[in-house]
Nucleic acid binder design. Sequence first.
DNA 1: ATCATTATGTCAGCGGCTGACACTTGGCAT
DNA 2: ATGCCAAGTGTCAGCCGCTGACATAATGAT
Lengths: 210, 210
Amino acid sequence: MTTSGLRELKKQRTRLALIDAALDLFLRRGYEQTTIDEIVAAVEVSQRTFFRYFATKEDVVLGVMDAFDQSMVELLRELPDSLPPTRTLVEAMRGVLDVIRDGDAVEHERQRRIREVIETTPTLIAAHLARQNTSLAVLTDEIARRMGVDPEADMRPALLVAIFQGATRVGFEQCASRQEFDPYKVVSRVEESVSLAMGALREDWATSRG
Amino acid sequence: MTTSGLRELKKQRTRLALIDAALDLFLRRGYEQTTIDEIVAAVEVSQRTFFRYFATKEDVVLGVMDAFDQSMVELLRELPDSLPPTRTLVEAMRGVLDVIRDGDAVEHERQRRIREVIETTPTLIAAHLARQNTSLAVLTDEIARRMGVDPEADMRPALLVAIFQGATRVGFEQCASRQEFDPYKVVSRVEESVSLAMGALREDWATSRG
DNA sequence: ATCATTATGTCAGCGGCTGACACTTGGCAT
DNA sequence: ATGCCAAGTGTCAGCCGCTGACATAATGAT
């Protein structure tokens, strides 16, 4: 229903065209130095159209990331309650990373450029961080439910999620400092840093119910 | 030298006047709904002057926070190398919190309003998060030095700092969800969440040198 | 072919932010 | 006191991100 039709096809096309044109300019001239007018000129649409596809300039680059964070939440919800909270976070993350791996070559290349643009632009790093913060609350509630505690009274769910997300970020940063933007390598390093962080926690810390 | 003189005095005055006027408007009408023009009208200076005191609109509120983060770094550097890395973070944080406690009544009230504005404004929460991220790298390097490891190769310093900062944030958020903005209470809750997080780590995790 | 729906373009405008330049004020030496 | 330099302020013009309102064009269903 949402995938068929000529109209929908064209929309996807211009959407991707805008993203790719933007990435091109951002990588060549820098994010801040590129204006919306330059992007829309490259795709030959009006500025207004740009803002119908993307709420903000950041969104061209970070929209894709938002989608990942969102699917992380969904995957977490689908996991059986029997798993220990800490493992569910890791499992859900693995699920997201698998989705990334599933893309075709073009998608991988786009992914690579997105990561490069983000990590070389302070504004975007900041904005990405800010957006992730939105889904933190949702993750926390879900973890709290699984632990059988009230997230308002018990800080452990929030702390667990914070640690998890911090570890994810550290993984990304390590890649950035090595100029490593290939999705596969990024993915495996993130897995590494997350398991390192989770391994640092005492066995029983987030499992007990009070 | 920088503190004396009539000129300097007036500067401090307009600076504080701008901050207080801004907080007033932000709390009454909301951050986004308040324009710079309204703020400068209240203080009777030009818009240009506002932007000579504050780089951005956010800065009126977040500038003070930046100062805290900065002094955290300085305090950390001054601590003896003999202390274990984890403790140095906690000690440095205590130092900052002490500075906050040292202020007079007027300063406390200002602090309270700042916290209230930030925590009730998504944009500002995000921006604050983004700014803190700047000092993370510095903290990480200092912790790595104390652990005697290379932060590029060993992710533990970065992870430790990430966990610490995550815990700080969780403390703030718990206050926000309780509508608790009094600096004293905020400070003690942050201390609580940080020690809870640090207690979750295995004893030897960040102490060993390899 | 007709018509409702939906996407696009145009235009006018707001608000944050900046550079350039003119003007005023505060500090300092004579 | 006077005159001078430096530092702070105001004015203006303008860029850029972003939005609402309205007109126009493309699409898909009948």
